[in-house]
C-alpha cells in the first residue's frame, strides 16, 4: 500500500510536468466516456421509461456503476497492460523488485488524467441523487465501495487471463469495459440468461443492480431472494478471492519471453 502511493505519486508528478497534454488527456477521457451518457439522454427523448426505470433512475445506475468503475480503473486499471509488459520484457523487471508486480503495474505511469472518466460519472450520479430516499442513502457509498472491489477483481481476472493469452489481451476488454457498459442500464432490459450469468458467474449484478433494487425499492424481475440486495459485499469478497488465486497461478505459469 505504501509502495503503491509513493510510486503513484512519483508518476503523477512526472505526468503533470507536461501541462498541455495533461489537460488534453483529462478533457479527452471526460468526453469519450460522456458519449455513453449522451446516448442515454437520446434514448430518453423517445421513451419515458426503459426496462421500467425512469431517466433519473437509469442515471443513478449509470452513475454508481460508472463511479465504481472509474475508481477501480484509476487505481488499478493499468494492470490490463500486462501483455504489453510481458512482450516488452518489463514484466521480468517487475519480478526482480521487492514489491508485488501487481502494485508496480498498477502504479506504473499513473497519471491524474484518468480523473476525466471519474468526473463525468460523478456529475451524472449527483444529478441522479434526488431519486434516493434519505432512509436508504446509506447503501450508496457501500455499493460504490463493493463496486470498486468487484471491478478491480474483474481487471485482475482479465490480466490473469493474459498470462495464457499473451497475444490476445483484448479478450479482457469484454469483461472490464463490457462489464461497465452492462451496469449502465437496468438489468431488466437484458435477457434472463444473461442476468443469471452476471448474478451467479461473474457477479456484475452486485455492482449496482441488486443494491439499487433496495435503494429504489423495486421488485426483482427474476424473483431472486430479497437478501441478494445486501449480498454485494459477499459477492465482492468471493470474486476478489478468485482473482487473487488466478493472479498467483498466472505468475507461477509465467514464461518469460526472449533472452
Amino acid at each position: 500500500m505504501g509502495s503503491y502511493l509513493l510510486l503513484a505519486w512519483t508518476w503523477a508528478r512526472a505526468s503533470a510536468q507536461y501541462r498541455t497534454s495533461f489537460a488534453v488527456s483529462i478533457v479527452s477521457s471526460f468526453a469519450i466516456n460522456a458519449l455513453d451518457a449522451v446516448a442515454i439522454g437520446i434514448v430518453f427523448l423517445h421513451v419515458t421509461t426503459l426496462g421500467g426505470f425512469s431517466l433519473r433512475e437509469v442515471m443513478f445506475l449509470y452513475g454508481t456503476g460508472g463511479v465504481a468503475f472509474a475508481v477501480a480503473d484509476t487505481l488499478f486499471g493499468n494492470i490490463e497492460r500486462l501483455s504489453q509488459h510481458i512482450k516488452a520484457g518489463t514484466f521480468d523487471t517487475m519480478l526482480i523488485r521487492p514489491v508485488s508486480p501487481f502494485v508496480q503495474m498498477a502504479a506504473d505511469g499513473f497519471g491524474a488524467h484518468r480523473i476525466g472518466r471519474l468526473a463525468q460519472a460523478v456529475i451524472v450520479l449527483s444529478l441522479a441523487l434526488p431519486v434516493v430516499p434519505w432512509s436508504r442513502a446509506w447503501m450508496v457509498p457501500l455499493m460504490i465501495l463493493t463496486g470498486v472491489v468487484i471491478f478491480t477483481a474483474v481487471f485482475t481476472l482479465g490480466a490473469a487471463l493474459q498470462f495464457l493469452l499473451v497475444d490476445a489481451p483484448e479478450i479482457a476488454n469484454a469483461f472490464t469495459y463490457g462489464g461497465v457498459t452492462l451496469t449502465q442500464y437496468p438489468l431488466s432490459v437484458y435477457g434472463d440468461q444473461l442476468v443469471r450469468a452476471v448474478t451467479f458467474i461473474v457477479p456484475l449484478a452486485f455492482v449496482n443492480w441488486q443494491p439499487a433494487l433496495y435503494v429504489l425499492d423495486r421488485p426483482d424481475p427474476l424473483g431472486l431472494p430479497a437478501w441478494f440486495r445486501f449480498a454485494a459485499p459477499l459477492a465482492a469478497l468471493l470474486l476478489a478471492g478468485c482473482a487473487a488465486l488466478a493472479w498467483r497461478a498466472g505468475i507461477r505459469r509465467y514464461r518469460s519471453t526472449g533472452s
Binding site: P169, E170, I171, A174, Y177, L182, Y190, L194
Partner: peptide, 15 residues
C-alpha cells in the same frame, strides 16, 4: 479477441 469483445458489446447494445 477483438471480434469476441465486439460481439459482447453487440449483445449488450442489442438488448
Amino acid at each position: 479477441a477483438g471480434a469476441f469483445t465486439n460481439t459482447v458489446f453487440g449483445v449488450l447494445r442489442a438488448y
